[in-house]
Amino acid sequence: MSQQTYRKPVPTPSPETKRYWEGCKNHELWLPYCRSCERFFFYPRDFCPRCFSWDVEWRRSKGRGKLYSFAIHYRVWHPAWAAEVPYVTALVELDEGVRLYTNLVDVDADPKKIRCDLPVEVVFEDVSEEISLPKFRPLDSRS
């Protein structure tokens, strides 16, 4: 999709999330990891929201997980999505244990063809010079 026609909201990286969006730009999913409780967390912050440690680092995700839940939109809530209904919003639970709000793509937006716990993998959509959005597709849809 050309940048001229891309009308959906584009994220503005913050000091805390810059590393995440840099990773996405390179089509890599990097997640914040707490060295104190040894678990990933999301969304990115300077500290771990579980144990409140500031000893955090970035680690690369394998980009795989499962579809925790999904919803299919038949109504145009925002004009930028007008050409896409029906489309699918999803919560993906990554193998690293964190959940991302995202879109399920490369799939028919048909309730009969989508089910919770479906294995998924990350794909990136380049939406601007700086921003690529991580989205997810069913693992078995790889061509």
Binding site: K8, P9, W77, H78, A80
Partner: peptide
């Protein structure tokens, strides 16, 4: 605005 709005506004 960073982690939800790019995927859906509604």
């Amino acid at each position: 605005p960073q982690f939800e709005a790019p995927y859906h506004v509604g």
